[in-house]
Nucleic acid binder design. Structure first.
Lengths: 211, 211
DNA sequence: GATAAATTCTATAAACCGATAGATGGCTTT
DNA sequence: AAAGCCATCTATCGGTTTATAGAATTTATC
């Protein structure tokens, strides 16, 4: 009976310890050339193994995309939901939402990028799933903005739906250039949050003083 | 000698009158499935012709992409430059820039979308070209914002580079959802411009009145 | 209506790519 | 060191896709 808790027995079908590394390589290449622009050979090259060896780690190229996308959205929704449900002001919550939405760029930019650009190529089932997920996130932003309007924190003539899409678009676009620009996430978050809440314009052009 | 100015003689190698239609079909399919996700067969299907017939209109699939991308950026830069060089206020110019940047979505959303999402797959030479073009446009937005800061119209602590990327990201993202959301360009432009210049926040939370 | 030009078709070559099957070697455990 | 599992390899099949060649058909011109 000797039950062993070492890495043995427990798994009937292989451990595949290198799996995370494989998925990371896939993310890198997918991010750079896109899903259909990538041959499985490209992933193998990056890893220094043979093309066919990849199939020990996933059953199909699409399955690999699915894994990458999953890691690309992991936690987003939950974090956003927590923030949205806190009882801070709408301004504060929106700023936190922006920060939370940008944070993953720091350590998994490729995964996020692949999710954003390649999710359309997921098999039907999981594409639907991430569709729902995506709409849920939009809704969270939209609701916080709507609450801000209702509370008198935000302008009354704001269209919460459009504003939410604007904010998300702005943040998501950062995935494309975050690495090239030399700016940290916290700096970026602050800049974006202030841009959205306060705008670019100066508050009170003070009554013109004579020099 | 009889020189004819009718549509004859002038072109030695064919007229290819259907070319615009062909390119439009390519744009449609590229926009939906991406460049590498599209087979030339798909374009042919949409047109009701045979796959091989396409090659009467362009020498390669990449060349078709090039044409689509070209139409996707046509005029952007020139329009933006004119606006940036006008002597309106920075606020006004930025609003006009946003409007001008969104306008093409009305009648060539597919072309714009393809340019934004698929330009990475252009052959090296033209990719470099649109790279320069793209940076030029960023620069225009950035400069107007910088001038607004210098003129005291915009907050002094704004990072013009990041703000420009934010605005462009916001506008470009609209290409993905413009059709689904039922909103006209003018409405969208106004909303976005106000969002960027004034922000979401209310100006003067008036000294708290009783209820 | 004859002729020429423009357009579309059929047929197919050649390369590429995803995926499977089964062999091989190395590491772990007993 | 024997046994078994884990990981990778070799070899290859079948399907897809881009692109070319040349015939056939339609359209325009005189």
């Amino acid at each position: 009976m000797t039950v062993v808790n070492f890495p043995s027995k427990s798994r009937p079908g292989g451990q595949r310890r290198r799996r995370p590394e494989i998925i990371e390589a896939a993310a890198r290449v997918f991010a750079e050339r896109g899903f259909h622009g990538t041959a499985t050979q490209d992933i193998a090259d990056l890893l220094g193994i043979r093309q066919a060896s990849l199939y020990y780690y996933f059953p199909s190229k699409e399955a690999a995309l699915e894994q990458v996308c999953l890691k690309g959205v992991e936690g987003f929704f939950e974090a956003a939901k927590l923030i949205a449900e806190s009882n801070a002001s709408a301004r504060e919550r929106l700023s936190l939402l922006i920060n939370s939405h940008l944070s993953p760029l720091a350590d998994r930019a490729d995964f996020v990028k692949v999710f954003l650009n390649e999710r359309q190529h997921l098999p039907t089932e999981s594409r639907r799933r991430v569709g729902r997920w995506s709409r849920g996130l939009e809704r969270i932003f939209e609701d916080v903005i709507r609450q801000g309007v209702a509370a008198g924190e935000f302008r009354a003539d704001v269209n919460p739906r459009l504003a939410a899409l604007a904010v998300l678009g702005m943040c998501n676009a950062a995935a494309s250039w975050y690495r090239k620009e030399n700016v940290g996430i916290s700096r970026l978050s602050v800049e974006f949050a202030r841009l959205i809440v306060e705008g670019l314009g100066k508050r009170d052009p003070p009554p013109r003083r004579h020099r």
